[in-house]
Nucleic acid binder design. Sequence first.
DNA 1: GTCTATAGGCAGATAGAC
DNA 2: GTCTATCTGCCTATAGAC
Lengths: 191, 191
Amino acid sequence: MKNAETATQLLDAAQQLVQERGYNAFSYKDLAESVGIRTASIHYHFPAKADLGVALMKRYTEGLSEALNSIDRDARSNKGKLKSFIKLYTETEARGAICLCGSFASDLETLPAVLQEAVAAYIELSESWVADTVKAGVGEAEFGFSGKARDVASMLLSSLQGGLILSRARGADQPLLPTVQRVFLKTLGAA
Amino acid sequence: MKNAETATQLLDAAQQLVQERGYNAFSYKDLAESVGIRTASIHYHFPAKADLGVALMKRYTEGLSEALNSIDRDARSNKGKLKSFIKLYTETEARGAICLCGSFASDLETLPAVLQEAVAAYIELSESWVADTVKAGVGEAEFGFSGKARDVASMLLSSLQGGLILSRARGADQPLLPTVQRVFLKTLGAA
DNA sequence: GTCTATAGGCAGATAGAC
DNA sequence: GTCTATCTGCCTATAGAC
């Protein structure tokens, strides 16, 4: 039986490294130093680096799925749901990091196929949830928006991913995501 | 005197590699094979990899500057200018690549300071040009948009950068940038 | 300007002791 | 589960011949 605690520590440290430096720019040595074990021990939990990458995306996608369920359960309005969704990214921006999925996506061509597919699945999950939420808001006359829900959903996801990347490069004193939220809600006719 | 032709070939090949695979995911060996020389010869033109990166961003930023001058000279309307600007990215999407600046930005934390600054400068150039163009369009009553020009400019850049990254991951059959353009122009009240 | 040869270090990964 | 030891290969970079 694997030691779940070490595996979790490895995933936590690896996630931070990928979100800060990128999948190709961190090594098992970096990870070993973060967690306080030797590189050879990491291979016990994740035989190859690709296995670690797949486990990261799996956990991240499950986390998103749970967060979306939470939002659907708790939020009072479709506008509130979308704001809660955007908040998931705002927290990442505050850490000066980028989305795990966005980080993998920017290294896409260097990734094994399973990992590429995991990236696509994460995007699809996000996009369909946003589109459904927009549709619901339009149907309930909460948003004045007229147009394809899929289109604004794509736009939102693109601007969140790009916003995180540009925000970090511009500096912590000029956050972009509040602006993304403002413009997006205005576009929806929900401002 | 350096052989300008080889240096240009190296920059061309390196730019493609960065836009496809990322700065940390290509090597002098890859580059040498692309151009048909030995890795040691690359060091004659670009002593360290960072020098190559800086030269890439310098050339890319100068290219943008020239493209913006061209657009300002030729376009008939502010809407036309913005469409020409977006077209610069559409061509990148068609190649299945991402923006050179976006690629560097996603690896930001692993870059030397000069390169980080070059990334920030490229973003600032783009953003201020878009904001100025939006302002002009609002002033000339071409756009119905009311709000901060800087905000929509940030939004557009974020969605273009993020759009390229997500588009590649979703697959060539579902381009995102036409959608980005449509939603953006609608937001501007220019559709 | 480009080459061969080589340095020195780090990458991911495996074998086998404990 | 974690360790030491080790492998093989690739990385950036340099020295010096041509």
